[in-house]
């Protein structure tokens, strides 16, 4: 905004309240525009597209098919497999990252030396991009990689075995993403008031008791946040299968978003893809709600 805006405001604004409304809208406008154009419109537009057999080259000639795309989803075995494999991936990564994140946070917080080095080691993978991570781990899982060297029984076939490929991607993901869990859980650990431990010490609790009876319950909210945010993020896994396995072998690492990408940008089945996107979104919202209530119930 500049002085010319103010002159404009003076002309427009009669009393003070009107002027504040105009100012308010002007300040909000830049974000609201990108929000509407690149978030809200696509959201509605996606719903619209999902009722069409969408013609990518000539959208005008798209054919309205009603709920046909959604009916297809119900019968689409490949999508169901992708969903199950995504759940499997989440199941392999999120609990492991939560436990590991808690262990790391508690370790770093115990007043040991070299915490800056440890924070670096735990967190630096998180600021590396997925393609670099993926290529690096392809090398590590490869015939002469460090991983294969010490797991000879896997014969260097982690990524080419249908039952090992997904755990392989999960391991890579834990390495890559646990820094996020670590950072949040470390903050949670650091905000537990010290006097609770003093009281517990006088009450006769040792380190392990204090961890179970004070630390973990006090970190509860952050752990719930990590599990929910982690689930939502990992459910949208894409880069790892794209870079490391291309969904294979035999489709065993094809995940929900990977399938969405296939539909949208390899087979250009955009109408169906939009419907699949919507279903994934509904599933994710449902997961986060269920997650929240289940955890909340069991913890209390």
């Amino acid at each position: 905004m500049s002085t010319s805006d103010h002159r404009l405001l003076d002309r427009l604004g009669g009393d003070y309240v009107d002027r504040e409304t105009i100012e308010g809208l002007l300040f909000a406008a830049p974000y609201l525009i990108v929000f509407v154009v690149f978030l809200a419109v696509p959201l509605v537009y996606g719903l619209y597209m999902s009722f069409f057999e969408w013609n990518f080259l000539n959208p005008d000639q798209s054919e309205f098919v009603g709920l046909e795309n959604y009916r297809t989803i119900i019968a689409d075995g490949r999508f169901h497999t992708a969903l199950l494999q995504t759940f499997y991936f989440v199941f392999l990564t999120v609990p492991a990252m939560t436990v590991l994140g808690v262990v790391m946070a508690l370790g770093v917080n115990r007043g040991i030396k070299g915490t800056r080095f440890l924070q670096f080691a735990y967190f630096v993978p998180y600021v590396t991009t997925v393609s670099i991570v993926g290529l690096l781990w392809v090398q590590m899982y490869g015939a002469n990689g460090v991983f294969t060297q010490y797991t000879a029984w896997l014969f260097g076939r982690v990524l080419s075995d249908t039952s090992l490929a997904m755990p392989g991607l999960a391991l890579t993901t834990v390495w890559w993403q646990v820094g996020f869990f670590f950072a949040i859980l470390l903050a949670a650990r650091q905000s537990v008031p010290e006097h609770l431990y003093e009281a517990a010490k006088l009450d006769g609790a040792g380190t392990i008791r204090m961890t179970w009876d004070i630390t973990i319950p006090q970190m509860k909210n952050s752990i719930i946040f990590c599990v929910i945010a982690g689930t939502i993020l990992q459910f949208q896994v894409f880069g790892q299968p794209f870079v490391m396995t291309d969904g294979g072998p035999a489709g065993s690492t094809e995940t929900a978003v990977f399938y969405l990408y296939e539909l949208g940008f390899r087979t250009f089945d955009l109408g169906y893809g939009a419907a699949v996107g919507y279903v994934i979104m509904v599933i994710l919202i449902a997961i986060s709600l269920v997650n929240y209530y289940v955890i909340e119930e069991t913890v209390n």
Binding site: H195, L196, E198, K201, P217
Partner: peptide, 20 residues
Amino acid sequence: PPQRRDVAMVFQNYALYPHM
């Protein structure tokens, strides 16, 4: 260690375990 001194303490901010 504190737990074997047979002392009990009341803290300024009470230090009650909030989740219990």
